[in-house]
Amino acid sequence: MSAVLASRGLGDRLTGLFWRRPNLLLLLLISPPLIWLGLVYLGSLAALLVQSFYSIDEFSGVVVPEFTLRTYAELFNPANMDIIIRTLLMSASVTVGCAVLAFPIAYYAARFARGHWKAAFYLGVMLPLWSSYLVKVYAWKLILAKEGIIGWAAGATGTTPILEAVLAIPGIGGNSLSTSFLGTWMVFVYVWLPYMILPMQASLERVPVSMLEASADLGATRGQTFRTVTLPLALPGVIAGSIFTFSLTMGDYIIPQIIGTSARFIGQAVFQLQGTAGNIPLAAAFAVVPILIMLVYLALARRAGAFDAL
């Protein structure tokens, strides 16, 4: 009998080719996504960046394709700064809200849920993602409206004064929940919550039980173990989740359009500037702001040691 088996055709020839040239298979596998990311995504990003250094002729409304920082200077107008700061505060508070709500759920799922309960957890977290984002936002508009479920429940339980007191808080209150920043915040938190829970759960699942036991064994209380072991080890997941909630909130222009006040957010500003106003350079400059903020955020997280446990 021969030491080499007979070739069985194309499959064997390809396997042989990839065995002789291991990099060839890798190249074939990653080149389509690389072309997509490199050309389509980074290309458009570069185009965006270039546009933001152009300006608009104030009389003719025509884009002047010459390098200038004038458009960026415009961002510092009080009206535009308002938009940026408002968006930043909303993104930060949505992220905190999501993190606080997500942690117990993720912790339960990672530590205690088994079998059917684990399936129920995944289903419960994913199910809202199956329905259209617009449908959910409009549903929330009805829930939060003055005549909605919350207002009705408050009336039925005699807690209307509490609801009114909350709505009377200056800055975040308003005529009804659906026309207040508080309402915008609630809907943002609801819509992005799964994006916080899933990475958190994945990172908590990777913390070995023996490490928590070691901490207790060495004399730590539950609180000390949480602060010095659980949280630092789960931090990459928390950061990953916060990147989702933070950047998704910063770029969204539909939720604040449907729920909230008439005050604008960055997403709305970009939408209006590139559409009706036709000011592409300023729209591009606005679009660069979230990118810069995310870069600063990641740099800070890195310095705080968030990625040490990766």
Binding site: P208, S210, M211, E213, A214, D217, G219, A220, T221, L233
Partner: peptide
């Protein structure tokens, strides 16, 4: 945490961070 007893774990359980 209040037992004056310490353990060397099988997988050592050293804190990686």
């Amino acid at each position: 945490n209040r037992r004056n007893v310490n353990t060397v774990f099988q997988d050592y359980a050293l804190f990686p961070h």
